[in-house]
Structure formats: C-alpha cells, structure tokens
Design a protein around this nucleic acid. Structure first.
Lengths: 101, 101
DNA sequence: AATATTTGCAACCGATTGGTTGCAAATATA
DNA sequence: TATATTTGCAACCAATCGGTTGCAAATATT
C-alpha cells in the first residue's frame, strides 16, 4: 500500500489530529471528542498515521496514548528545501526593490 | 471540491512534476516524456496543481509553459512550523548528550 | 489550403478513500 | 464474578482518484 508522510498529512482531519497531539499525547476516545465523526473513523486515521510512522503509541492498561513523531514530518521539510530557496529569493528581490525606493 | 496544497503534493507523480518545474518551466508534452503515463494523465495532474495555485501557466502560441508558484508551497512550511520547534528541541537534546560524553 | 502538432475536455474504469455499523477482546470497576 | 469502558478489526458503502481512450479546437508548418 502506498503510504507515506505526504499522503498522511493530505487529509484535514489527520492534520487536526496531529495539531492536537503536538500539545499532548491523547487516547483515541479523547481525540474523537474533538471531531464530528465516530471514534472508529478517528481510529482509522490514527492507524494511517501510525502506519507511516508519524505517530507512535504507548499503552498504559487498556488506554493507548498516541503522540507525534516529529522526525517523520521533517521529511516534508527536507522535500520543501529546494522550493524554500525560491521563495526566499523572491523575498530578497522584494527587499531590494524596497531598498531602492 | 476539496483541493488544497496538501492534497496536491500527496501524489508522487505531482511531486515529481514540481521537482521538474522548479528547474525550468515546461510544456505538458515535455513533462509527459519524463513519465511512464500518458500525456493526458500528466495534464490531469497539472490541472490539479493549477486548481490550487501551486503552478501557473504562460501561453506562447499553441504551447503552454507551466511554472511553480513557490508561495503556495510556503503554506506547508507554515503549517510545519509548530512541529519544527519539536524536532529542533530534540536536536538540542542530542547535542547536549554528545557534549556530555 | 491541406496537414501536423499541441493541448484541453469528456466519458469511462478499477482501485482507493473516508466514512459507517457491528462485534469481539482486553482491562477496570461494582 | 458480573458489568462497564476502551480499543481494534472486519464488512460494507458512496465518493473520489489516477489512469485510460477518443475527439475537437487552436496554432504551426508544408
């Protein structure tokens, strides 16, 4: 199955889950309370995020706390690198224009 | 239709297209030569990239040259911001460990 | 004027997606 | 021990995705 970080963050619900998990680790039930969908739907999203290593789990009793793996998201940052050069160049150009005025 | 930058870069072929276009603007035909798929499939991808503003076009005669809009990709960079803090913290931690050895 | 090239658009197709409901397993609580 | 809570898994469903083929329109070329 084609499962990578880019596909993982393509879905807005999954991005929202990551935004919640970056603040603190949460259980699927706690996460589901923040969304309109069912717990199972949220669990599916967590499954996809886990599958490509963006989140990890830590079980304590019957509860499972999920937390973000920021290193995986760094992969996106690395891919963006070549484009970052471009928008920084454009900013420099704007800077030059402003200096000349 | 749910079309945003995150969904645009989810597909590996579209990422490859952007990687080609960042070097130089290209026509759909020229792009299609770099892939196994048909020109029409590539054109569909270009359509999606155009729809969410990641690429723009410049028509000269019957040829259309597509180029990257780096500002749109910056949106992803901005979203990554909150996580970047995390992996930088972890790097600092590793740095501390190495210094103590 | 006739022909070739470049492109976009529409129709169709199988696979995947994001969602649902139902249920079983494991752990906590009464 | 009986019951409640938390979770994962499987089956199913409509919508979307990435791909195809066919065709028409616009521009170059002969």
């Amino acid at each position: 199955m084609r499962r990578d970080v880019f596909q993982a963050i393509a879905d807005p619900t999954r991005r929202a889950i990551l935004t919640l998990l970056v603040v603190q680790a949460m259980t699927p039930n706690a996460l589901a309370e923040h969304f309109e969908t069912t717990r199972q739907a949220v669990s599916k999203h967590i499954g996809i995020l886990t599958e490509c290593g963006v989140v990890s789990q830590k079980q304590t009793g019957r509860e499972i706390h999920y937390h973000v793996n920021p290193e995986k998201l760094k992969e996106i940052d690395i891919w963006l690198e070549r484009f970052r050069k471009m928008w920084e160049d454009r900013f420099d150009q704007l800077d030059n224009i402003l200096n000349n005025l």
